[in-house]
């Protein structure tokens, strides 16, 4: 076979690979990159005086205003999302551990149960929490009888918002943790106990570091959408518990202040990007496989 003949099929294969990439690239371009650019230019638009009408420009003051007016909303979003992520991790880890290592023949059923809430809409499930956490509901009554609630109620407090966020994003935490824990060879845990590590030390030195990829993936999948969420704060919180998602929504839909809403969106994206980068760098040093 000549060299030219040999190169032919290789070239063709490379072309097929690019062709296969095309739908994905087109999708990203049309539905992500172009809207992102559009959003960026909107965030710099100049007001014309009449409501909802803006003209093109480079008004960087939109960003200054966004930060000075809404910094509390940003802070709340990051804190609520942070607390919800930690709570979800604390709840999900033992559950994922159990499903991966102890559930035996119940494993498939338990995984189905984890995913089952997705069959009902996000909005509907959050409405359901309104009923669960209502002032006359059993949970509130019981906790009040024990004098455990500072405000005497759960609904319309930050507790309700964080509880809602934790609940809604829990499956995103459980599934990657499960995947990571399921991959761990049980003999490594036996090796730990063979080498003088108590069950707790074995967990700390073997299981936990080996499950880090799942922890990182799970926390990101929980934190990122939770930080941008507005439905939980809208339905379960009071006006004092609004998050940045609510501010973006209000500016866009109610005030029709598109530049402000766009600027807020960009700041949110940038801050999440920074937090996530720092987080991955830190987690990455922990001797990941």
């Amino acid at each position: 076979m000549t060299i030219a003949a040999a190169v032919g099929p290789a070239r063709r294969r490379a072309r097929i690979a690019y062709l296969l990439l095309l739908p994905g690239v087109a999708w990203l371009a049309i539905f992500f990159i172009i809207p992102l650019i559009s959003l960026f230019f909107t965030s710099l638009q100049v007001s014309t005086g009449s409501s909802g009408k803006y003209k093109a420009g480079f008004n960087w003051r939109n960003y200054v205003e966004a930060l000075s007016e809404y910094w509390e909303f940003f802070l709340r979003a990051l804190i609520y999302a942070g607390i919800a992520t930690v709570l979800a991790l604390v709840i999900a880890y033992p559950l994922a551990y159990f499903i991966a290592l102890k559930a035996g023949r119940w494993r498939a059923l338990m995984l189905v149960l984890v995913v089952a809430p997705f069959f009902a809409s996000f909005l509907l499930r959050t409405y359901a929490w309104k009923t669960i956490l209502a002032d006359d509901a059993v949970i509130t009554q019981t906790l009040n009888a024990l004098h455990l609630l500072p405000d005497g109620r759960i609904l319309n407090t930050s507790i309700a918002v964080i509880a809602g966020l934790t609940y809604n994003f829990l499956p995103f935490m459980i599934l990657p943790l499960y995947a990571a824990l399921d991959k761990i060879d049980p003999r490594l845990i036996e090796a730990g106990s063979d080498l003088y590590a108590s069950p707790f030390t074995t967990f700390r030195k073997v299981t936990w570091p080996l499950s880090m990829p799942g922890v990182v993936a799970g926390t990101l999948l929980t934190f990122i959408p939770a930080a941008g969420d507005y439905i939980n704060a809208e339905l379960l919180g009071s006006t004092k518990d609004k998050m940045i998602g609510n501010a973006i929504q209000t500016n866009f839909i109610e005030f029709r202040d598109y530049p402000m809403a766009s600027a807020l969106s960009f700041i949110l994206m940038a801050s999440i990007l920074i937090i996530v980068t720092v987080y991955i760098r830190r987690a990455g040093t922990e001797e990941l496989v």
């Binding site: 036996e190 090796a191 730990g192 108590s198 001797e287």
Partner: peptide
Amino acid sequence: LKAYKRPVNTVFQSYALFPHL
């Protein structure tokens, strides 16, 4: 005696070396 308290050590069939260390 618990495994981690025995004066006994094992070379496992698939070695079971800790991949993260």
